[in-house]
Design a protein around this nucleic acid. Sequence first.
RNA 1: GCUGCCGUAGCUCAGAGGUAGAGCACUCCCUUGGUAAGGGAGAGGCCGAGAGUUCGAUUCUCUCCGGCAGCACCA
Length: 653
Amino acid sequence: MITLTLPDGASRTFDAPLSGAALAAAISKSLAKKAIALVLDGAVVDLATQIEHDAQVAIVTPDTPEGLAVLRHDCAHILAEAVQELFPDTQVTIGPVIDDGFYYDFAREVPFSLDDFEAIENRMRAIVDRDEEIVREIWARDKAVAHFKEIGEHYKAEIIASIPEGEDVSIYRQGDWQDLCRGPHLPSTGKLGKAFKLTKLAGAYWRGDSNNEVLQRIYGTCWASDKELQAYLTMIEEAEARDHRKIGREMDLFHLQEEAQGSVFWHDKGYIIWQALEQYIRRRLQAADYQEVKTPQILDMRFWQQSGHWDKFRENMFVVPDEVPSIEEEAHVITGKADLMALKPMNCPAHVQIFKQGIKSYRDLPIRMAEFGCCHRNEPHGALHGLMRVRQMTQDDAHIFCREDQIIEEAVEFCHLVQLVYKDMGFDDVMVKLALRPETRAGSDEVWDRAEERLRSALQSAGLEWEELDDEGAFYGPKIEYHLRDAIGRTWQCATLQLDFVMPERLDATYIGEDGNKHRPVMLHRAVLGSVERFIGILIENYVGRFPLWLAPEQVVICPITSEADSYGEEVLTACKQAGLRARLDVRNEKINYKVREHSHAKVPVILAVGMREAEAKSVSVRRLGVKEQSVQALTEVVTALQTEATPPDLRG
RNA sequence: GCUGCCGUAGCUCAGAGGUAGAGCACUCCCUUGGUAAGGGAGAGGCCGAGAGUUCGAUUCUCUCCGGCAGCACCA
């Protein structure tokens, strides 16, 4: 007798052990048809799994997250089967499920091309039509290693060989094709359906290590129905239209050009956003008792040697020889013999220098030292990405020098500040991560234990949920990271707080404690926006260029309907400007339709149309971006209302 | 940096072994129009750079540069 409890709390008893498939059939015919896997006491397993004893069970269907994951995993397998049928010289490696789909890494001499996708997809559909039964087999590890070696699947053999000796491995067989896999899988290939599409082709290192050979990765997406597949493809297409590089060009915010790779040319409109943001965050910092400083851009190599950057970070630094370039035709411009200086990649060592001027008392702490520091980092070319990853960036950086007993309070305060700012920016999809000790690190395990625990309690006190990342911390300490999403779902680290016991030591920063002795301060490296460039990139994508009034580069455009109303337009413009609004008058010889269309495309939040009727009544016809309706209101009222709306969030009553 | 793809007017994109085309934008003219394109004319290109194949290359081949996607990197 076996008693099985279903998700709705109901239970059923069976005389003998039975498979998931039999269970589904016992519940209903339609469920049996839709069933693709089984949840047995919380674990997703094959539908064919025998249920031997009392358990919590659920039948997995494609319309659940678990079901979709199984589907995508099978889609990866079917991709691999199709590829090996079409290209027998290909070795398989791994093929995991990812957000919205899956990928499979292949090893093959000849590169795949996008043109191959059609043939591969066709073969995948044929495999679905064949409806091959998918069977799980348990093999001894050594036998599996030998087998995969023998059939020339060296990567698979390597994976299996890394499984502990003596353990059995599971092999899934579908038709003539087989793969090492933990599972679970569909009962047969026919259950996959055809709502899949191969999307991207890219290189990827074997085992994620750039010292290893490059494999060819094929990405795909897979859904329970064609409708969902179509919806996903449409969503991706629309998301691409939100790309900040595209919107930045359309709205004339900034540009990039190859003579300054990774450095941004900010146009006037983009720089208005920058300034509004900088002034806003500066006020927030002032309110939180930060002091603002400015430190040198170029410092001698010896300085970076002392800070440890020369050792740990040199590859990412721009180096400048301290000599006068030769103007002789024949001579080398630079001798290569001069002392070296470097553009600062970070502000922290310079801030320590300010801290070290004079003698600091424990009474002075915490010192919160902020700088809108322009830093240069020599990023790999392949890493550069619009505003998101640049080589010259400005951080809303600050270093908090404090005593150990002040760490938690400072960290909690910081988390509150981030939450406040991100709320003002309208971000609701923020991911918080805690990056823990990396393999190569400075400081004892005891120090790290303490540091990590402190950040955990700070996150807890701030009421946040977070994910912990092993091995991702800075060499000098663990860090809290706030990640934001871009238009197509990629995440970018923005705010960060890093706990550092090392730098004060290296640069010999001290304060006089209550006991009259010298002590090391702790440093908290922190940024709220992160890099201003990246943050604006995220803002553009999140707002799709339709900024709230306080950030909009152009807030108001005044459009006379006939040239007779031009002089009244001037009057409206003056009123707007006097109220501090960023306004412009469009007196071009164009029809109102045309002007409305153009300024709407330019994402100007407010269009004020004025004709003779408005001129006589001292009113304006207000049209808000994205709203078809207009309303005619008194000029003075409109200006006052817009003025209120354009007030930055921290200055509102 | 690695793998793949791409590079034609300011933008979006056609094109073909015989030195280029559209729409939008731009300039000028006509039009004074009431809320997402009024009409006409004009100007605009070393077809990413270099080398090779060819009678001839923007088109084919190679190298480089840049862009895009992913990987690695992101202290």
